[in-house]
Computed example of a mutant assay.
Amino acid sequence: MTTDAEHDARTAKAALRLQLRAARRALAPQARAAAARQLAGHAPALPGWRPGARIAAYVAADGELDPAPLLAAATAAGLLAYLPRVGDDRALTFHRWTPGDPLVPNRYGIGEPAAGAPLPVEKLDLLCLPLVGFTAAGVRLGMGAGYYDRTLATARPGLLVGVAYGEQGVETLPQEPWDVPLDGVLTETGWRPAAAPA
């Protein structure tokens, strides 16, 4: 049974999600492209960025900050890139991908790599996931479907990196027990390790 506090937290998250999604969708295409290039330029500052490291990101949708240039930079630097596939159980699996490899639209119209043997999430050195909002302490606001929370409920990668525009940062976010905290956030202005709780 949902308590009043849980209901209030979910209502607050839903309202903030609508506001932040509208703001990122309103960005001009040139601003989005510039932010994606800047993001890639800051990626080598991520802990664990090294040749041979396994890095997963996502295919941008709904105005998300596009990590495609970041993945291109990663493969050029000798990292191994992975992208998610959405499973029937509403969890994600991560599959090897190289820039230029074809993608197949999933049920949401978002490109996925062809099916193949997935890499367990705990074998990823870095996992870059999209955010709707974030706090300095690494609390994240996602799209609300729970795909990443479900995927990360029993295993974590070496480094969990939120990817978002800097303006998606907020002072506080309601938290629920299943919310998985970030190790930090990478924006177009640089890498921000999660601050220790006060």
Rank of each mutant, 00 (worst) to 15 (best):
T2R: 14
T2D: 13
T2W: 12
H7V: 07
H7Q: 13
H7N: 08
D8N: 12
A9I: 00
A9R: 14
T11Q: 12
L18Y: 03
L18A: 14
L20E: 10
R24G: 10
R24Y: 15
A26W: 15
Q30E: 15
Q30T: 15
Q30Y: 03
R37Y: 06
Q38K: 12
H42L: 07
A43R: 11
A43M: 11
P44M: 15
A45C: 09
A45R: 15
L46C: 05
L46N: 04
W49V: 01
W49S: 06
G52R: 09
G52L: 11
G52E: 11
G52F: 11
R54H: 12
R54Q: 10
R54F: 00
A57M: 08
A60Y: 14
A61L: 11
G63D: 09
G63F: 15
P67C: 15
A68S: 10
A68I: 03
P69C: 07
A72Y: 05
A72R: 14
A74Q: 06
A76W: 13
A76N: 07
L79D: 00
A81K: 04
Y82K: 04
R85F: 14
D89L: 02
A91H: 12
A91R: 15
A91V: 13
A91Q: 14
H95I: 10
W97T: 08
W97D: 05
D101S: 09
D101W: 07
P105L: 14
N106M: 08
Y108E: 02
G109C: 05
G109A: 04
G109E: 04
I110K: 06
I110M: 07
P113I: 11
A114H: 13
P118R: 02
P120V: 00
V121W: 03
V121G: 09
V121I: 10
V121L: 05
E122T: 05
K123R: 14
K123Y: 00
D125K: 01
L127F: 02
L127A: 07
C128W: 01
L129R: 06
L129F: 11
L131V: 02
L131K: 01
L131D: 02
V132W: 08
G133E: 03
F134G: 08
T135F: 15
T135R: 15
G138W: 02
V139S: 10
G142A: 04
M143C: 00
G144L: 00
Y147Q: 03
A153R: 11
T154S: 13
R156P: 12
R156Y: 03
P157N: 00
L160S: 05
V163G: 02
Y165F: 15
Y165G: 09
G166L: 06
G166Q: 11
G169F: 05
G169R: 15
G169C: 12
V170D: 08
E171Y: 03
T172F: 12
P174Q: 08
E176A: 12
P177C: 04
D179C: 04
P181I: 07
P181L: 13
L182V: 05
D183N: 05
G184H: 06
G184S: 08
G184K: 03
V185W: 01
T187L: 13
T189W: 08
G190L: 06
W191N: 10
R192A: 13
R192T: 10
P193A: 02
A195P: 10
